[in-house]
Structure formats: C-alpha cells, structure tokens
Design a protein around this nucleic acid. Structure first.
Lengths: 156, 156
DNA sequence: GGACAATAGTTGTTCAAACGAGTAAAATCT
DNA sequence: AGATTTTACTCGTTTGAACAACTATTGTCC
C-alpha cells in the first residue's frame, strides 16, 4: 500500500532511524530466544553481569547503571529474578543502605544452558558480516555513543 | 564498584551489544524531546509516516508494519493519537474490513512545531560524526539488517 | 554532635508493549 | 451457493517501563 520511500530530513536522521530499525530487527531475534526461558534481554543481562563480575555480589543500583540499557525499575527486575531463584539478595554489613545481589547456583546453571543457543543467535544476527566489517561497525558505534556516555559508565 | 570490563563471547556479541547500547543512549535523547509534547517516538513515527505518504490515508495494519519498530499494539496507539485529535479514522468504502487512518490539520501543525527541535536533536545525537563516517555507518547498518527484513518492508 | 544533605533502595501509579483470543468482512474453493 | 480460509483489525490480560514520591542510612559541615 505504501509505495513511496520516505525521505530523510538529514543524514543524522537517516543514521538514527537506521540504527533504531537495525536494533529492532536484531532484538526480535534475541527476544525470541530468551522467551523460551521466560527471560527478557534485560534480565539476562543482569545475570550475565553478576556472573562476569570478579566480585561475587553487586549493589542493586550499581547493577542498574551498568546494564546495557539503564533500568529505572531495577528493584522489581531483581524481584522477579529472586522469585525464580536465580539471584539472592542480602543487605551489606558495612553499609546498611546497600543491598547486594548475587547470582545463585541455579542462575549459573541457567546461563550455561542458554550459552550455546545464544551464541548461535548472535551468529544468526550478525554472522553474515565479515570480520573487518564487524570491527568497523563496533568502532563507529563506539564513536557515536561516546559523547553520550556518563563518565562512570562501563560502556565507553 | 564494578571494575572489570566485561569480555565478549564473540565479535558478533560485541557488535550486538554495542548496537543496543548505542541505540539506548541516542533513544534517551530523542525521548526527552518527545516527552515535551507528550509523545512517544512510536507515536511520532506514525504521524510522520502519515504526513510523508503521498496517499492521504493509510490502512491501520499497513501503518503497523511500516513503522521503524513494529507495533503489535497499533490499535491503541492510533486510539491515543485520535483522542488527542492528531489523526482521524474512517472505514474504507471499498473494503469494510480496513480502517483508514489520516493525519488531521492539528497533527500536521504538531509536526511543524516539532520539526526544528527534532532536527537539532539529531544533530546532538550524531553531529559529531563526519559525513563519510555517517555514510559508512548507514551502509553497515543496512547490511546488518537486510537479511532480517521482511520482503514487503519499507525498510530495506 | 546536631542539622542538613546525599546516597541506596523501595513503592505507587500511570502508561505502553506483548501475546493471544475473538469478530467481522472478503476471498477462495469446491 | 455454501463452507472454509484469509485478512484486517479489536479487545482482554499480563507484564514491563517510566516517573515521582517516600523511607532508611550514611556522610558532611559548621
């Protein structure tokens, strides 16, 4: 029904919409995978962050700011993970304001179960690009977001 | 608190997470802008699609599939736009199943009011990249998503 | 050391996204 | 022409995101 190709108002708009569209297409692939485990991508990222950290427990808000996509709703996100037995919370003894989150054995097992199909998922998403293209893409994306990163972010 | 940089399991994962992160940073900038008008980016895109189309009315589901990000919930999205007076709906006379959506004069005015600050927003997002870098980025993003586009999509 | 501010998290509420089931009209297929 | 399928939404429900207000604890500054 729609025959006209939309024009873009600026190269910057074209790039942003292309970025959005591309993310949306790849996201669909990943979310289809995670839904098999009743997980969202955000929930997975919390578990991944907890697993990959060299410390065994992370304060709740530190989780929130270090996720790929910032979680305003970190409390209830962790609630759901705790309900399912993948993480455990305990109040810090040195600072009774902070709540430390750690991954459980069940959480680790879940990550192990997911690992190989997630790797395959990333291949499905991006396996058609050559190594050099991926590098260039990663580099350009970093250049795009660097001015928009908070200084304390993990994601520079 | 988190000192370790996460390693990536594969270049493809690195690229995907970089894409997600980058989109998330730029999205925040755009959504801050749209929130001044009580709009979401998706709602804006519906209006933009309606305005840019050479036909004056578009079937509801055709809208849904041609948005930057697919809208499962297109009915209520259009509901909200209609409530605010920015679009109007009418049932097609030739096919009584389809509902045609068209932008109103108020909707067009809204787009005009937004235009200049949105352009500025895109500059804030991406103005720090050189023209050649933007081109390269747009090209790489297209290459990434092409295999994941439906054949009838606007977004190849 | 007491007032004030900052930090860390929680809770309430509203709004939007996701998923599936349901309805009505049109197209297709004997 | 009647049964079946497909198309084009629509609606109900559950879940998650966004924003702001609130509590508890710690830090700071005369």
């Amino acid at each position: 029904m729609l025959k006209t190709r939309l024009h873009f108002d600026s190269p910057q708009q074209e790039a942003y919409l292309g970025l959005w569209r591309t993310y949306d297409r790849l996201r669909e692939i990943e979310e289809r995978l995670f839904s098999h485990w009743g997980l969202t991508a955000q929930q997975y990222n919390v578990l991944r962050l907890l697993e990959a950290s060299h410390v065994d427990a992370i304060p709740t808000l530190s989780l929130a700011t270090n996720l790929v996509s910032k979680a305003a709703d970190i409390t209830r996100l962790v609630d759901r993970l705790e309900t399912r037995g993948w993480v455990r919370r305990e109040r810090s003894k040195t600072d009774r304001r902070t709540v430390l989150v750690k991954i459980t054995e069940a959480g680790n097992e879940l990550l192990n179960q997911i690992a190989s199909s997630l790797d395959q998922c990333h291949q499905d998403q991006l396996g058609h690009l050559a190594a050099g293209e991926l590098e260039k893409l990663v580099e350009l994306l970093r250049k795009v977001r660097t001015p928009h990163e908070a200084s304390d972010s993990h994601w520079i």
